[in-house]
């Protein structure tokens, strides 16, 4: 009817932000003591750690709110130093990590003893370590801190209970066979190294 001015916002993103603030116990106008310890709720509305992009596109998006809250209750805050190796290629998976502050580098060697190639750089808000916990395979890369920082880590059992179960749909061998007979295609997404060290073979 006239020229107008509008503002558009992604509805899903706003829903996620509202949910996270609610779970974190954020109340407009409520002030907290400076001496209060940083708790799980405060992590949740820390936009440095869990920025909008990671909430909208990361693994937290698909989690039920109750799991998100419990996840942060069980996470442990770990100060780390520059040069510290957090996970090492070939080790067993033990923790899932989120970077609260600091930067890290991911490197990988294609063969035992071969030179490592840097494959990724991670900073605050990034997560790592989930692959070995999901697959049950050994760590497929080394992650080393490039700066001092703080990590949030979640133990393997807590990860499986709170993250893996809601996010990974598992089916048994018989059901997989039935689906393949009906035209489903099985894809092997393991790295060659993981595939070689596994007892599971594709025929």
């Amino acid at each position: 009817m006239t020229d107008i001015q509008i503002l558009c916002i992604d509805a899903d993103l706003l829903d996620i932000m509202l949910t996270w603030d609610q779970l974190a116990g954020y109340e407009k106008g409520a002030h907290k003591s400076d001496k209060q310890e940083r708790n799980a709720g405060e992590w949740m509305y820390s936009t440095g750690v869990f920025n909008a992009a990671s909430l909208k596109n990361g693994i937290f998006r698909a989690l039920p709110p109750a799991n998100v809250e419990e996840l942060f209750r069980r996470m442990e805050r770990v100060p780390v130093k520059a040069g510290q190796v957090i996970i090492r290629q070939g080790d067993e998976g033990d923790y899932y990590y989120l970077i609260e502050s600091g930067a890290a580098e991911v490197s990988r060697s294609s063969q035992v003893g071969a030179a490592k190639a840097i494959v990724a750089k991670l900073d605050a808000g990034s997560a790592f370590g989930e692959e070995a916990l999901v697959s049950g395979n050994k760590r497929n890369a080394t992650v080393m801190m490039k700066t001092d920082g703080v990590l949030l880590r979640l133990g393997k059992q807590d990860f499986i209970e709170l993250l893996k179960k809601p996010l990974v749909n598992e089916i048994g061998l018989d059901e997989a066979k039935r689906k393949i007979e009906k035209g489903a295609v099985l894809l092997d997404v393991r790295t060659p190294r993981n595939s070689a060290s596994s007892n599971c073979r594709m025929h």
Partner: peptide, 17 residues
């Protein structure tokens, strides 16, 4: 913090009649 993030992600658009 979330309002600041949203502010960086959205713009005011003018739409002609």
């Amino acid at each position: 913090g979330r309002v600041d993030e949203l502010a960086a992600m959205c713009v005011v658009e003018t739409v002609s009649q």
